[in-house]
Design a protein around this nucleic acid. Sequence first.
DNA 1: AAACACCTTAAAGTGCACTCTAAGGCAAGG
DNA 2: CCTTGCCTTAGAGTGCACTTTAAGGTGTTT
Lengths: 147, 147
Amino acid sequence: MTKQYRIGEFAKLVGLSTYTLRYYEDQGLIVAHRDDNDVRYYLEEDIRWVGFILHLKGTGMRLNDLKRYVRLRAQGDATIEERRDMLQKVKADAEADIAELQMHLEVLSHKIDWYDGKVDQTIADTESFQDYLQQFNEQGADKNGQE
Amino acid sequence: MTKQYRIGEFAKLVGLSTYTLRYYEDQGLIVAHRDDNDVRYYLEEDIRWVGFILHLKGTGMRLNDLKRYVRLRAQGDATIEERRDMLQKVKADAEADIAELQMHLEVLSHKIDWYDGKVDQTIADTESFQDYLQQFNEQGADKNGQE
DNA sequence: AAACACCTTAAAGTGCACTCTAAGGCAAGG
DNA sequence: CCTTGCCTTAGAGTGCACTTTAAGGTGTTT
């Protein structure tokens, strides 16, 4: 018989608050076991499950999608393809996010280098960074229509 | 004399709403020029400035930090080191975020592969993913103290 | 003359994911 | 017996970054 963790201990184990754990349960992401006094307890396998949920969250998956995913999972093997497709979309989105982040980081790094130059008094060219920035200025105006 | 953009046109150009543009101005991130009727207008250089702001935002920099950054900038060259240090921190944080994201993505990818196997009926081993997940379960319980 | 784009201030609303309080109660340990 | 940890429901509060509305206005275009 594996160890049973009550919510307080379990919370520390998985790095969530007891509030959040109950909240996730409300939302249908987790099912806790109950003892004779209706006190929640969790098992090793629950650590793994919460861990997995946190990996999904960590890739940017939203609670609503997570809920849908869990509902599908509960419906058994018939939903495997749908679940895979969900994860594939999450993955693609996360990869796009990373790419964007890296693009922004490149500009940032350039600016830092420029500051380093300024600090070292080795570069006096105030315009070079502006020029560099220029090449990034064909973004944004596409995915936002308002007014 | 370069072209003057009024707020509506400028908004489309930089991919923000006019609301947000005025909001950023309130917050001190942008300074708009005004014509004789107090109507805002923006120049090419403002496109570059907003572009840069959006790069910083894109790396995860918060509005408050952005405000501080802009305040420092207004104080001139004496604050260059401080600004560089700010950007370096933002950069380090962003890089850490990417690393974390990639870690989560790895698990996700594994799960997708597992689903692919399931879909193809080539793998029947239901436990392999669980085993794989196990190795990631020494996280989280460190950076969260509550109750 | 009406439509349109802009201006102001102040305040309320939105979305997400928690986070916490209130106000009651049960069970085990020192 | 009191503290600690857990239980419940319902609802309010938090943080961030917008987003929108309200209710008044000006100036330019059709």
